[in-house]
């Protein structure tokens, strides 16, 4: 292989760093999965192989419902936040500067600018009043709160994608008598898709991880997986949580594999 073809996209060292980054990302995941099979009660002392934490987690109603609740909230919040963020990104990029642009920008990024605890206390007080006033104590408050703080995480990648995106295709579509909706649907959206995908994945993951705001907004019986874990942290954390995480990882991998196999057939 002495005569390697010149690859303009190759930058020396980049691939090495990337591979190392992936190794580093998965090393802790490896130990996490390993301890899910721990026979003992510890997440740090190995006591032989066992599946008993999986059965324990499966039998634990609280954990199961918390996991399901986390996934529900994260999916809803990711969809709502990405929808709002896409529209806002379309609204605030690629046009001449206008009055109020800075205001919109600051508003959208505001959830990033204060530590979570501050938003959490504010929401606690506000939602406490609304809950008493309306009598409604459902999951809606958590979905609303999560959607709001996920918006900047979805917005920024989409905006980064939009900025400087080639306008000529859209102009061409308009010249061919496509109406604005057709242009958006068939030209802009496909071009924007990687940004939207990145934004949605970020929003989903951020919502899945949230502890502080959830802790303050949740009503009775609304523990999510992170708040359940937080409650355990002061005492002792058992491999049960590793087992749940491993289960979630397994599910993701299966879904992804299925997705890729299916799309391969089509292609």
């Amino acid at each position: 292989m002495a005569d390697r073809r010149f690859e303009p996209t190759r930058i020396p060292g980049f691939a090495t760093v990337a591979v190392l980054a992936f190794v580093a990302l998965y090393l802790p995941i490896f130990t996490l999965v390993a301890y899910a099979f721990n026979g003992g009660t510890s997440i740090a002392v190995w006591e032989g192989v066992s599946l008993h934490w999986f059965s324990k987690a499966w039998e634990n109603e609280a954990v199961k419902s918390a996991t399901l609740r986390s996934l529900t909230i994260a999916s809803l919040a990711a969809i709502i936040a990405t929808g709002c963020a896409t529209l806002a990104a379309l609204g605030t990029t690629r046009r001449r500067a206008f009055k109020g642009q800075t205001f919109i920008y600051v508003m959208i990024n505001q959830p990033l600018m204060v530590p979570e605890i501050v938003t959490a206390v504010a929401l606690l007080i506000l939602f406490g009043m609304v809950k008493q006033w309306t009598g409604y104590q459902g999951l809606g408050y958590l979905v609303l709160a999560h959607s709001a703080f996920c918006i900047p995480f979805a917005y920024l990648p989409i905006r980064a994608r939009l900025e400087g995106m080639d306008l000529s295709l859209e102009t061409a579509a308009a010249d061919l008598y496509a109406n604005p909706w057709q242009t958006f649907r068939h030209v802009t959206l496909p071009l924007l898709a990687p940004g939207i995908l990145a934004g949605a994945m970020l929003a989903f993951v951020i919502s899945l991880d949230d502890v502080v705001i959830t802790e303050f907004v949740k009503s009775g019986g609304q523990d999510t997986l992170p708040t359940y874990m937080l409650g355990q942290m002061r005492r002792a954390i058992t491999p049960e949580v590793n087992a749940i995480s491993t289960g979630l990882l397994g599910l993701t991998v299966i879904l992804l594999t299925a997705f890729f196999l299916l799309t391969r057939k089509k292609a």
């Binding site: 606690l124 406490g128 009043m129 809950k131 104590q137 802790e215 303050f216 009775g220 409650g231």
Partner: peptide
């Protein structure tokens, strides 16, 4: 019985004080 967790006395206090919590 549905159990919901807290991890500090102050969080629990602030939360109940805010109202509309649904706990018994």
């Amino acid at each position: 019985v549905t159990v919901t967790d807290y991890d500090s006395n102050d969080t629990a206090l602030a939360k109940i004080e805010a109202g509309g919590h649904g706990f018994d």
